[in-house]
Amino acid sequence: MERKGALLATCFCAGLLGALCSSLALSAAGSWGLMAAAGVNLAPALNLSWLYPRLVWGGLWGLLFFFPVASPRNRRHWIRKGLWLSLLPSAFQLFYVFPQLEQKGLMGLELGQLAPLFVLLFNFLWGALTGMLTRIFWGRG
């Protein structure tokens, strides 16, 4: 049971670090004007009150990564599994957070027509990094 707990903690840490990298990339893309050039009003300022919740949520979503890799025989294709898993936080953001919590319309279309694409891209980055970092941290064990 100790190994399962260690893998669970590894998934949380990898999800948190994946969220950190994804958040930094999102902030950089906004400050460099890539979002504005695409007609998307999704350029958050990089501050701690914006970053901390994203890190916690990234870790919590990373806990779900435990389920596809919990069995030793299923521990392959880590990055692919992370990419598939990234569709869950994307759907949550597009179909719950944007319309219900932030009143930005279904899929955040009030932020711009390409907003859903950017949400998917930055969550794909999170998923790929979560899968890769979990694999690196876990090793061959």
Rank of each mutant, 00 (worst) to 15 (best):
L83R: 00
R75Q: 06
A28W: 14
L129D: 02
G112K: 07
N47Q: 06
M1Q: 07
W78N: 02
C21V: 14
R140C: 03
R140V: 04
A70T: 03
K81L: 03
R76E: 10
F92C: 13
W126Y: 10
L129W: 07
A45L: 07
L16G: 08
N41A: 15
A6D: 09
A36D: 09
Q93D: 13
L106Y: 08
L121S: 13
I79V: 15
A37S: 03
L85N: 07
A45E: 10
E110F: 12
L114R: 13
S31V: 08
L60D: 09
P44Q: 03
G33I: 04
L111V: 10
W138N: 02
V97A: 14
T130S: 11
P89N: 06
L133Y: 01
W84T: 05
L83P: 02
P72G: 01
A25L: 15
L101D: 11
F98A: 15
Y52Q: 14
A14K: 04
G62I: 05
P116T: 08
L114E: 11
L64K: 05
C13P: 00
R80N: 01
I136E: 00
R140W: 02
R54Q: 15
N41P: 00
W50H: 12
A14G: 08
L114G: 07
R140L: 08
A70W: 12
N41R: 12
I79D: 02
A9M: 11
M35F: 06
F118Q: 05
L26M: 14
L121Q: 02
M132Q: 11
A91T: 06
A91H: 01
V119M: 07
V40M: 05
A29G: 10
P44G: 06
C11A: 14
F122W: 08
W61G: 09
A19E: 09
F122L: 14
F124Q: 01
W32S: 09
L125H: 02
L7V: 10
V56G: 14
A19V: 10
A37R: 05
P68A: 06
L129T: 05
E102G: 01
L114N: 09
L88R: 00
L85H: 07
A36R: 04
M132D: 01
G15W: 07
L117R: 09
Q103E: 14
G131C: 03
L17M: 13
G62R: 04
G39C: 04
A28C: 13
G18L: 02
A43N: 10
S23E: 10
A45F: 04
L42S: 11
N123F: 09
P72Q: 00
L83Y: 07
A43H: 05
P53Q: 13
S31A: 13
A19D: 09
R135C: 09
W57N: 15
I136L: 12
A28M: 12
S49W: 08
L111I: 10
W84Q: 00
F92V: 15
C21S: 11
A115P: 00
K104C: 12
Q113W: 15
P89V: 08
A43F: 08
G30I: 12
W50V: 14
L117I: 11
P53N: 12
L87Q: 00
L114A: 14
L120M: 10
